[in-house]
């Protein structure tokens, strides 16, 4: 069962059987181009799910080396990978190519910043946040809003996490939600407060689901709320976030590029 682009669709039959997606949705995924920034707890899971789902091109960006304390939650890595001595984005790329050799996985060993963001996010339809700091997220937000690229914000620590799709000039952007001054303050990360494995996996699964809806043009099914979970306290909340008309990034004074 080949489609007209030469992809083997039989890999995706169970997904195609889901009527909301179907063969037309699958073809859109196969034509999709996404960038995942960060291959830690969030990025590993979203990359894994979206490679299996058949997103045709996935660019992974990270500059870190694998450490043993990554292994309890970063599901693309194994103990034997610790000996390889190569950046973890390259290990993740190898794994994803084994998982789905029919798609293109491109690795960039880099730390995204305001100097290289245009290049690193170029020619992609969607960006998924797997970073671990707010400063980088503001860089992604500004570039994505400027170029009209949807991106999916996600963050987690301890037993809590949240995600929110950001559709430029339709939903609130990161700067509508958080003051840019916050980027320079201290915050909770896995290093400061710990993290339990199911949390990034759940948040990344929600990010991947939102990505699939956006890439298949099923915006009618996309939840625009911020979704918050605390898996220890068994809490699941939807928080409506409204655009800020005075936002310095997506407000009326800042038209698209």
């Amino acid at each position: 069962m080949n489609d007209d682009m030469g992809y083997e669709l039989s890999r995706y039959t169970r997904q195609i059987l889901f009527s909301e997606l179907g063969e037309s949705g699958q073809k859109k995924l196969l034509q999709g181009r996404i960038t995942i920034v960060g291959t830690g707890g969030l990025g590993c899971t979203s990359a894994n799910l979206l490679a299996r789902a058949g997103v045709g091109y996935i660019r992974l960006i990270d500059h870190d080396m694998l450490k043993i304390h990554n292994l309890h939650r970063q599901i693309l890595y194994e103990t034997k990978d610790l000996r390889k001595g190569i950046p973890k984005v390259l290990i993740a790329t190898e794994k994803l190519k084994d998982i789905n050799p029919e798609i293109i996985i491109e690795a960039k060993v880099a730390e995204i910043n305001s100097e290289n963001v245009e290049d690193l996010l170029s020619s992609c339809d969607l960006v998924i946040d797997g970073t671990d700091n707010l400063k980088t997220r503001f860089v992604i937000n500004e570039a994505c809003v400027r170029h009209g690229i949807p991106w999916i914000y996600g963050a987690c620590v301890a037993s809590c996490g949240y995600m929110m799709p950001i559709i430029p000039r339709e939903t609130a952007c990161l700067s509508c939600l958080i003051s840019q001054e916050a980027a320079h303050k201290s915050f909770f990360t896995a290093q400061t407060s710990g993290i339990i494995g199911p949390v990034p996996i759940l948040i990344a699964a929600l990010q991947a689901m939102a990505a699939i809806k956006i890439m298949t043009d099923r915006m009618d099914s996309l939840c625009r709320d911020m979704i918050f979970v605390d898996l220890w306290k068994n809490e699941y909340s939807h928080i409506k976030v409204l655009r800020d008309s005075k936002c310095l990034i997506c407000g009326k004074r800042n038209p698209p590029a």
């Binding site: 671990d132 997220r137 987690c156 620590v157 990360t189 993290i195 928080i239």
Partner: peptide
């Protein structure tokens, strides 16, 4: 009023 702490991990 909804208030969230500075969560940044990924």
């Amino acid at each position: 009023v909804a208030v969230f702490p500075p969560i940044a991990g990924g």
